[in-house]
Design a protein around this nucleic acid. Structure first.
Lengths: 209, 209
DNA sequence: GCCATCGTAAACCGATCGGTTTACGATGGT
DNA sequence: ACCATCGTAAACCGATCGGTTTACGATGGC
């Protein structure tokens, strides 16, 4: 092993083959689609095919694992941390603001989990299962915030927000007319309509209309 | 030619090779993804590869043309006809109701245009261009209805509704928790928030000004 | 009957697919 | 110094990829 033994870990080139492969897979599958060949994948990762096939059973498993390994970072990039003490409404809208920023950067190709599920078609594929789990986590986050905000129907609204998230993602993929920040605006409209306002737990029973 | 000459047209086997190919392509690309081979495609269409390659320049062109040919039928299945004289709000919600119905049928794999764009990645691919055009038409329909309903900001709301449409489509692909009719509910919430109600201004259905 | 046209079936091309195997260089434990 | 382990490089496998070509059957105009 070139790197694992030392007490210090070299950040640039020394990641274990598994990590290098998963990182390369996460990027290449996202950028070029799942159709990319294992030869190109291994070459980009600097890993031999033999190593890959003794770390993973198949390309499908690499797909699923690379998606799963991508989850935490993607979630950290979108969701506010527990230290963010703003109102639930603001914490929710942060997700959409960050997504809008990503989409504005140009190399955004939509939510990697939705893209993978679309390409896989088969909902039983391990990669599809991972994608479904990620979406569930996103919905869970929304629901928890909405419960904290004492929203009327947290479950429905949480799913609606997830739907908006995916819709904004789809618009980015298809590169429809710009209208910057449309995701955030739409999420805010739904929160407004449900009476979820800036303040938390103030016993505010007011309706949007 | 087996069919074109006769005055009577055989409905089952007589479509021209181009039509057979486009029909098969529309279905197979949607069901199995754009990765399906031209051999399988031609076999399913009952068309020789030679015929295909003298009807189209490349597989990419078949992709684009099959998407384009699918547009009118898909639009007809979703959008209300001009003879439907209900209020703009109801005409808009019809789109989401029909989409929810499609999604409930089980073999729904999301909007074919979004799926194609996701798989193609390249926004300049002829297929991506066709997909973008279809979305534009959908947004155009929403905007026209919202103008008729004298909504305050038809442009933004039209894009928001398209976003909801694509989000509902993504949820179907990923097979997230059911919550039937979530697309319709969300669209209705946005219309409510924008003050687009059942009746339009003077109670005149269809056109408003 | 003749012939051009349209279309299918299938062989063929080089490249690449997912996956396996062979061979060999570096490493670390003892 | 020895040797097992880990990893890479590359050959190799049958199948399939997108695309071309050859050969031949059916059709309709004249």
């Amino acid at each position: 092993m070139a790197s694992r033994a030392g007490t210090l870990v070299d950040m640039t080139t020394s990641a274990t083959p598994r990590e290098r492969l998963l990182n390369a897979a996460g990027e290449l599958f996202y950028r070029d689609g799942l159709g990319i060949g294992v030869d190109a994948l291994c070459k980009a990762a600097g890993v031999s095919k033999k190593s890959m096939y003794q770390l993973f059973r198949s390309k499908d498993e690499v797909i699923a694992e690379s998606l799963a390994s991508r989850g935490p970072a993607y979630q950290a990039a979108l969701l506010p941390g527990p230290d963010d003490e703003r109102s639930p409404r603001e914490r929710i809208l942060t997700v959409f603001e960050r997504q809008d920023q990503l989409a504005a950067e140009g190399n955004f190709l939509g939510c990697p989990f939705v893209s993978a599920a679309v390409e896989l078609k088969d909902p039983e594929h391990p990669g599809s299962v991972v994608a479904r789990h990620f979406k569930q986590h996103l919905t869970d986050f929304f629901r928890a915030e909405l419960v904290a905000a004492e929203a009327e129907d947290p479950e429905t609204l949480a799913v609606q927000l997830t739907l908006v998230f995916d819709g904004a993602s789809a618009r980015a993929v298809i590169r429809a007319q710009a209208l910057a920040g449309i995701g955030t605006v739409t999420a805010a409209a739904l929160l407004d309509a449900a009476g979820v306002r800036q303040t938390v737990g103030a016993g505010q029973a007011g309706q949007g209309s």
